[in-house]
Design a protein around this nucleic acid. Structure first.
Lengths: 358, 358
DNA sequence: ATCTCCACTTCATACGTATTAGGGATCGTG
DNA sequence: CACGATCCCTAATACGTATGAAGTGGAGAT
């Protein structure tokens, strides 16, 4: 006996019975594809009427099990986006993804059910949850490498927002051109007379960090400057950045400018603001400083730090466009797209101080 | 011949063959449920080893096909949320919905694939798209009544954010208490000496508007004031609100205070700002003014209008909680929940001018 | 009248998993 | 030795859809 509490949702079989045809006919009418013009108009109408009357809607699971498309794109983030202050950073990506998904005629499936950080796994419960969607956009800094590898091995169609690499195989991505942007930032500082430029990088060795370092070295080379490895400093937590640090670098290394890699949250900006407020070191009079990226949100009362900004919504849109492209191909090959960043002049860099160490 | 381009992912059958057991045994081991302690330890290990070696991951589609539920909650908005400036209004709802959805262990399906306003129908394509999800949260002001009716008839589980009524049957909703909030606003104005209070309502006769009007009448009654029907004015577009209007009301009707129903976009605030800038009428010196709700986003440089604000994220969370509750019931009955609004004092109301008409 | 052809519809099956009823050993017991 | 009991496993089936093959009936041709 079927459960009588919640009425079972109607299936194609129900419609078929109701309209006096076979389930196969219903399928042909509903999915409306190539073979559907084989159906007589009267039959088609009868089926549609029955479907409307019974309130039919296709079962996604069955459809995608069969191998067909269900017109869902997934969005999966490796970090929790919504509850934290990171959301200000990720929201523009989401916007772009959402917008383009709608424009392409897909619906968006937000993978978010995680009870704890440990559960934040694509393969939670032994299953690749992403497979519910036709393809997936991935996002986030703290990638689980083994999962990314597995995804590539399964060759599930996905596009990463941000450049990513895996050991074997290639990842499709839409990335920001950190190399060029960082290099340009070095060039600008060099133009203003700086010769001792410190690069403050994240500890983790992720692609975005590697790209910035590469841009730093490239920029120095282009300017004809030597790389002093002591000027590449790792910082576990940008909140640790203090006036003491900066004064030490100025005094001991002759540093006149600092490039800082920001985080997706507000820690870096908070640290900078604290430093400014302490008035122990002035930017850019004592030292120029520029951000290799853009903190989450920019409110007008915040200081206009020199930086470059990512076209986040554009990247989201481009990722969806690429994904839909991949889905259309029989033998999809990985694609890569790099989008330039925008230089934001700001007011935290200036000419190198004259009194610097020679 | 299997397609060699996209390699087929291993299934339980593959593992079974590999481990020399049956598919059923694999399923028992993998899903690990109640009956899995029936399996000999040696067999279990063999299966797990084979699964690991082949890189098995369960197929969600098949799993949820078998089970009926797919652990998806839908979010459908009757207005386009993302590309417009309305998004600032709807975003907090989305936040709450997303957060609670994740907390409840569901994924969120955003229905957004609409190419035109005409397509913005639940029943586009003759099928109820919402049914892709186990249940759905609905949102938006411009509801399609006939669709809402149909949804209720189908008894598809859904919760509306905002109070809604249908002709027959009951809608589950999480609404804001506009009646109490508006009534309280009237009381506050009365306390400050106002006797001639104009209510500027939306033209459309939706529940939120009706509730505000009810609160207005209730507030007047509680203050012992008569209702002058001329003081209830409809405004098709809040952008039409001008200094001329206000001066006319002050001069001809003796109005000393105005209550305005805001829109989800920035039109009302723009109109108010324009009026303030024109300096033809001053708030609150010439006339007090308060908003019956809250415009999309509040940036610090914006004037601090007196208003009340909706606990939008809370409403989103509550809606999801209610929906999950409904899904858990065998015979779900409609539920209603009303959440109080917060009074924001602001600076646009003050004591009634003395020189007003008696 | 028989055959062909065409337009339309149905049959049969596959997709991958969960589950229930039961089958085949092995063991203990009478 | 026969019989049930126990343990471990498998066969069979259902879930809802899509699709290539096969079938049906009627119109037209021979």
């Amino acid at each position: 006996m079927p459960p009588q509490g919640r009425r079972r949702r109607p299936t194609q079989v129900d419609i078929a019975r109701h309209a006096g045809v076979s389930q196969a006919t219903v399928s042909l009418v509903i999915s409306g594809g190539a073979a559907s013009d084989q159906i007589a108009e009267s039959t088609r109408q009868a089926v549609l009427a029955a479907a409307a009357e019974l309130g039919y809607s296709a079962n996604v699971a069955a459809r995608s099990l069969k191998g067909g498309r269900n017109h869902l794109l997934g969005l999966y983030t490796f970090e929790p986006v919504f509850p934290t202050d990171q959301r200000d950073f990720y929201y523009p990506f989401l916007l772009g993804v959402e917008e383009e998904t709608a424009a392409q005629g897909y619906d968006l499936l937000l993978f978010s059910s995680v009870s704890s950080a440990a559960d934040r796994s694509i393969y939670a419960g032994g299953a690749n949850r992403l497979k519910l969607a036709d393809g997936c956009v991935l996002l986030g800094r703290n990638v689980r490498r083994e999962e990314l590898n597995a995804l590539v091995q399964e060759d599930f169609p996905f596009v990463f927002i941000g450049r990513r690499e895996v050991d074997d195989g290639e990842v499709s991505y839409v990335g920001a051109d950190y190399v060029a942007a960082t290099s340009a930032m070095v060039a600008e500082l060099h133009r203003q007379g700086h010769r001792r430029i410190l690069y403050l990088r994240a500890i983790e060795d992720t692609e975005p960090t590697r790209d910035r370092e590469q841009g730093y070295r490239k920029g120095l080379a282009a300017a004809g400057l030597e790389v002093d490895e002591r000027l590449i400093q790792g910082l576990a937590d940008p909140a640790d950045l203090s006036a003491e640090h900066v004064l030490h670098w100025i005094g001991n290394y002759g540093v006149t400018a600092i490039l800082v890699e920001p985080t997706e949250d507000n820690r870096l900006v908070d640290a900078l603001t604290a430093m400014t407020d302490s008035e122990r070191v002035r930017f850019p009079e004592d030292c120029s400083i520029a951000l290799l990226g853009e903190p989450p949100s920019w409110t007008p009362e915040l200081r206009d730090w020199t930086r470059f900004s990512l076209p986040r919504a554009d990247m989201g849109r481009a990722a969806v466009g690429m994904l839909v492209g991949l889905l259309g191909e029989a033998q999809p090959a990985a694609r890569q797209l790099t989008i330039p960043c925008t230089f934001v002049p700001g007011d935290s860099i200036g000419p190198a101080p004259r009194g610097g160490r020679p």
